[in-house]
Amino acid sequence: MARSNFAIKRQPGFATIAIFCFALLYLPIATLVVFAFNAGRSVAIWEGFSLRWFQQAWNNDLVLEASIRSVQIASTAAIIATVAATMAAIATTRTKPYRGLTAKYAFINQPLMIPEIVTAVALLIVFSRIKVATGYSGLGYLIAAHTAFCIPFAYLPIRARLESMDLTLETAAADLYATPWKAFTRITLPLLWPGIIAGLMLAFVISLDDVVITEFVKSGGQDTLPTYMLGQLRRVVTPEMNAISTVFLLISILIVTLFFFISRRRT
């Protein structure tokens, strides 16, 4: 009984601090969502309920175009990154520990460590050279850049899943006449799916809301939804931005919730 007296919940001021923190985190977002439904043109003065900004965003060709481009880039980058991450995760877990393995982990995860702006500038310089040399200026650059920074995000859940998997299962498959390839497709892969899906969704979300690298790498007319919004905010701010953000938020919440349930699923 004495222990519960020291429980953090009973400390004086705990509730106040908690409420303050949650308010700080979620009030701005709540305000943003509320004003998406504002009837007036202001993002600060409430003038009544309306769905006009959602309608306007929906009818805005630029928004639609940017959204489609965002999804194109995010899905392509996420898939490529997940395939690469899966291979990397298998290579770094299904092996006896050796010198340099830790260095490899660091190498795979380094996009998480390097400041995004540094990567952005570096990519800008390299890609502009390639653009000049090849004349190609399509979405490939953005996809390549997004793939690169998505790999560590896809890698982490896949590796976690592999590490929690019983190695004896693969041994047992080999014992039962399964060639290494059969053992992989029949045993390892089916058990790894939740990790792969989780990695894929995480990579997708990360790519979807990237601003810095995209802003530097994109050519003219290659706005994604976040960079389009950034451009709009520089001019005039209407609740249309709030409406787009709200939809964006909803999609992100959906994906993250799905991610949570999939990664929690244990066999």
């Binding site: 299962l169 041994t171 498959a173 039962l176 399964a178 089916p190």
Partner: peptide, 28 residues
């Protein structure tokens, strides 16, 4: 191991968790 006509009962059993009892037995 997959070329040896020898099979093992593992200490941890190592049954394939994503398969049924019958699928496990039929795997080899």
């Amino acid at each position: 191991p997959f070329k040896r006509p020898v099979n093992t009962v593992f200490q941890s059993y190592a049954l394939f968790p994503h398969m049924t009892v019958a699928q496990n037995i039929g795997f080899g």
